[in-house]
Structure formats: structure tokens, C-alpha cells
């Protein structure tokens, strides 16, 4: 195996193992810790693909904000009770079977994929010369300005919704 393949193999194996650990841990806080490891590995994979901006954002947004909120909520729960509850429902063998069949299909299909060379103006060299942050910014605020603004409005609606729900009702 070449060095890039070795790197990728490490990340792929580690990410799969961490994902399995997340769903099998009894204690939700341990799951969150495994998830932190998973997010850091995803960021590492982004770095490996020359997407340093995406890697930094992955850590700041997912590990730094969303996962801390998860942890905040989980710590408020009564874990002693949670740990004794059965984790899986009765039909888990059926779900596992379907999952394995889908995975088998995926493996069969993977052999027929041909990787095309990079097309268009955003080749690896072009992004490297400008820096990935600059490239993402330019595309986001010119070509995809409307979808970007729509996404912002969707988020704004969610924030207002949360404020309305949390507000004290004065009769």
C-alpha cells in the first residue's frame, strides 16, 4: 500500500470502529466521547483531502458547539435509570440483516465506479493557489448567494421558534 492509502485505511477503520462504539456504549457520556473522537477523525480526513477550512469548521461547529450542547443535555438526564433500560428493541436482528444486505450491495457497486479527473475551474491546484477559505467564500457569496441566504433564513426561523417556546407566557 502507498502512504495515502495507509492514511485513508487508518481513518476509515478508526471511524467505523468509533461509530460502532457510539451506538453500543451503555453510558451516553461515553458515546459522546467516542463521537468527539469520530469528529476529530473526520476533520483529519478533510485535512488529508486538502480541505483545511472544512476541517477547522468541522471541529469548531460539531465538536465545539453541537457536541457540547449534547453533553449539556445528557448530563442533566438521570443516567442511573437510563443505564438499566434495554438498549435495543426486539426487531434488531431484522434491522441488522437489512443493513448487511445494503452493505453487500454497496461493495458490489464499488467495483464498477470509475473516478473522473477533476473538471471545471476548481481543480486542486486552483484551490491551493488561492486557499480553500477564499475559494469557499467566493463561491458562497456569488454563485450560491440565494441558497446561502435561504439557509440563513431557515436558521433564523428556528432561532425565533426557540425564543417563542422558551418565553414566559404573561396572561
Amino acid at each position: 500500500m502507498t502512504t495515502p492509502q495507509l492514511f485513508f485505511a487508518y481513518f476509515a477503520v478508526a471511524m467505523t470502529a468509533l461509530s460502532l462504539l457510539i451506538v453500543t456504549r451503555k453510558n451516553p457520556v461515553h458515546s459522546v466521547l467516542c463521537m468527539l473522537g469520530l469528529f476529530i477523525h473526520i476533520a483529519g480526513l478533510y485535512l488529508f483531502l486538502n480541505a483545511e477550512f472544512l476541517a477547522a469548521i468541522q471541529i469548531i461547529v460539531y465538536a465545539g458547539a453541537i457536541l457540547v450542547l449534547f453533553l449539556f443535555v445528557i448530563m442533566m438526564l438521570n443516567l442511573r435509570k437510563e443505564e438499566t433500560v434495554k438498549k435495543y428493541q426486539a426487531q434488531w436482528p431484522v434491522s441488522a440483516g437489512i443493513g448487511i444486505i445494503l452493505a453487500a450491495f454497496l461493495v458490489l457497486i464499488l467495483g464498477n465506479i470509475t473516478v473522473l479527473p477533476a473538471l471545471g475551474e476548481y481543480s486542486i491546484e486552483a484551490i491551493k493557489s488561492e486557499g480553500s477559505m477564499m475559494t469557499v467564500g467566493k463561491v458562497l457569496y456569488t454563485e450560491f448567494l440565494l441558497p446561502f441566504e435561504i439557509a440563513s433564513i431557515v436558521l433564523l426561523v428556528a432561532i425565533i421558534g426557540a425564543v417563542v417556546l422558551a418565553k414566559k407566557r404573561t396572561e
Binding site: L36, I40, E52, F53, I59, A63, G64, L71, F72, M75
Partner: peptide, 24 residues
């Protein structure tokens, strides 16, 4: 690094886990 500031912000947010997890 080209994303130096973001790197430091990312690590300072990971550092918060030490306090939260240690406390829990």
C-alpha cells in the same frame, strides 16, 4: 497554517471538554 486563527479557536473549544468531562 492557512487557517491559523480557526485552528486555535477549534482547540480552545476542545479544551472545554476537559472541564466538562472532569466535572461530570
Amino acid at each position: 497554517l492557512n487557517v491559523g486563527i480557526l485552528y486555535i479557536l477549534a482547540l480552545s473549544s476542545v479544551g472545554a471538554y476537559a472541564v466538562i468531562l472532569g466535572g461530570w
